[in-house]
Design a protein around this nucleic acid. Structure first.
Lengths: 338, 338
DNA sequence: CTGTTAGCGCCTTCAA
DNA sequence: TTGAAGGCGCTAACAG
């Protein structure tokens, strides 16, 4: 037995000739069978089965105006479970609408994002969903995208007016910080992303607002805003805790910073380093938070839901049920006390 | 200003007429510019820019034998960080080869997998990578797939001889269990997936082999093999620890079971439930394992690498550098003691 | 170096 | 109820 490699996919013509009909009859049968005699339909379907025929979707969508059934999705980091869940949400809604997703990972790289978007457009995607890298917006302008609708998720792009799905970053950070203040803390550290990261800026704003509203000054010595990964976060936490006047509580603006802070707290406990056992508020959930040696409050949200909302917004443009100016959906977050 | 929606994507013809050349000259220019005068190329590229033209990849790949540049990827659960990383690895290698991935989530559903595969074939994917659900293999047979190469990842499909990338499940589980035995444990519980799950079966086999080789009997009372999620794992752990003769150590066959076991262990400590503080070996890493209240050994591996290997195997078929019978790559795992 | 012709697989349109 | 013609966007193959 030789392999089947090299055997071209059968075409509609081959199905037609095997069923003894014209290609059009096959096409009509596959399209639902309107105006095709039942017995003919059966002959056609038999031929389809025997040949292992699959309709060529690319050829099908060649005709302008025909949807390709593809949604282009570009995210910044698939390895982050947050974005995995996001992608899952998008995929679910796309599947519910009979669409498939083409997925690209940008790795926070501008050039890569541009490249992905071009490719997506070239593949005739019906729509685009992306978690933008904080770059410029030229390649996302309507005149570049033509009629392809775009939804941004998690972040905005400066100067680009597009449908957007966000979390309530400011509100969540505000409430989380307020919870610490209510518990009597006044020396509250901040761990987060640099301000050029959209969510980093917003979450800092929430923290800052809660502090100043209560008349508690923000001390730059215990604000660290440039940690993108767990190791950097650990180091930042360490430096903060080593101060003569360390924070009694920490607001962590995302999962990576929280894990880093926890590692450092754990290290100090294991090594018997004296000093604070700071309470922690974490924007983003993490597993086993209940086993941590310090009280942890979680600002929780649902990335999958965010993905579903993004896709829903996109499809509302695609089916024409939403028109007009760009919309922003801001999803609520919930505070879970220890 | 009205919206740009409804403006069709420009075609090669429009670029041609704007540049004052024939479509072929545009095509040649876009293909690299061989045999096109430099000044003409510049005119063409100018027209491309001005019109915001993107080559229609679907039309391009219409011609039989032309690759579509798409790889179909179907995985069981994108929300699981393990598979997120896997998908990332596939995406990386695909991108290195100038390919894009179409991603579908099967949710362990057979019918969905069949549907996804049909759709992928219909979209003329150049290859398929899938984490199969433990169903039958009819839709994956070569005669159904035509010339589209297939790589299975993480699991095998009974009765299907296809390129496969696996972890060293048996060896990893064996070594992990042996580590517990070496530490003097003889009463070692097992938490894992049902035996119909490929990895569940293999990891149990490694556990069993280590036990019997050392002459330690496997006690069914402390073997729980049917937990697919964290809650079920917690319950199974609880039942096991509540026994009159509880295990002094636990082998957990995957991340979900480990988290469940940890939750239960944490609960018992918090609530002051008397009883064992079992040592744990976990197949799959998890964050903050060093903060756990019991010693944890990790059987670690790299899902991203698994994805990269799967894609590499696929491309070796696509470019003809690998021919002949199906291959299996088994990636090693590493044991990290507490 | 450039253009014309033809055809990939499918489906809309029109005719029978 | 069925089929034939034509064209979607693009590019090999073949002129010129």
């Amino acid at each position: 037995m030789s392999t089947v490699r090299g055997v071209r996919q059968p075409t509609i013509k081959e199905v037609a000739s095997r069923a003894g009909v014209s290609p059009m009859t096959v096409s009509r049968t596959l399209a639902g069978g309107r105006n095709v005699r039942p017995d003919v339909q059966e002959r056609v379907m038999a031929a389809v089965r025997e040949l292992g025929y699959y309709r060529n979707e690319n050829a099908r969508s060649l005709r302008p105006g025909q949807p390709s059934g593809l949604i282009g999705v570009a995210i910044t980091n698939l390895a982050n479970p947050y974005y995995g869940n996001f992608a899952l949400g998008v995929e679910e809604v796309a599947a519910e609408h009979g669409r498939r997703i083409i997925l690209g990972n940008t790795g926070e790289d501008d050039a890569r994002e541009r490249q992905l978007v071009s490719d997506f457009i070239g593949r005739q995607v019906d729509g685009l969903i992306l978690v933008p890298t904080s770059g410029d917006a030229a390649h996302l302008r309507p005149e570049r995208l033509g009629e392809v609708p775009l939804v941004l998720a998690s972040r905005r792009v400066p100067g680009l007016d597009a449908d957007t799905v966000l979390l309530d970053d400011v509100g969540g950070a505000y409430r989380g910080t307020a919870a610490l203040l209510d518990a009597g803390h006044t020396r509250i550290g901040f761990l987060g992303n640099r301000s050029s990261v959209f969510t980093g800026e917003r979450r800092y704003r929430g923290y800052e607002r809660a502090m100043t509203e209560r008349g508690v000054p923000v001390d730059p010595a215990i604000v660290a805003r440039d940690q993108q990964d767990v190791d950097a976060a650990s180091r930042a936490a360490r430096a903060m805790f080593d101060l003569a006047d360390p924070p009694t509580a920490v607001f962590s603006a995302n999962n990576r910073n929280t894990i880093g802070a926890m590692r450092e707290i754990g290290r100090r406990l294991r090594d018997g380093v004296p000093g604070p056992r700071p309470a922690v508020v974490s924007f983003d959930d993490f597993e086993l938070s209940e086993l941590m040696p310090v009280p942890v409050t979680i600002i929780d949200h649902d990335a999958r839901l965010l993905g579903r909302e993004a896709a829903t917004l996109l499809f509302s443009r695609l089916d024409g049920s939403a028109e007009g100016p760009a919309r922003t959906v801001e999803l609520p977050v919930s505070i879970e006390s220890p």
